[in-house]
Amino acid sequence: MKTRLLISAFAFTLAQPVLAEGQNPMATGSAMAWQCAPCHGTNGQEFLEAMPPLAGMSVEQFTKAMLAYREGTRPSVIMDRVARGFTDAEIDAMAVWFEKQPLKQWENTSLTEANAAHQSAQTQATGGQK
């Protein structure tokens, strides 16, 4: 048990990029993705409104869109402002998380399905390490 804890602590240290003084470690993909829900649906699973669903969107599509908003090369209403709040690594972490979410309306998704999708995204994000 003790050995396992030590190993995961070590892995965690390795995974963290070197931070400048006063800079926060990155928030998790899910913590950032949750902040998108008021407009894009719980877990990005809103398929009935003008804002596009994010669930199941490919990493490439998500990343390209966010970078274009951030750099001002894609016209937008508010997404340019939102995108300017995120670094490349943060955008990537959200992209990985959203890609694993079910392509269905949130109201028709069970808690079990949601948990499984979350676990799958976590596994992807950590390269199989817990």
Partner: peptide, 30 residues
């Protein structure tokens, strides 16, 4: 606890078909 990340987007109507918005993503700094 992990790093906190907050956000706010407020759309208001200045008329039935005229919207104005304010948006920001937030972090804890200093």
């Amino acid at each position: 606890p992990g790093t906190a990340i907050y956000s706010n987007v407020c759309y208001s109507l200045a008329g039935e078909n005229y919207g104005v918005s304010i948006a920001a993503v937030y972090e804890v700094r200093d």
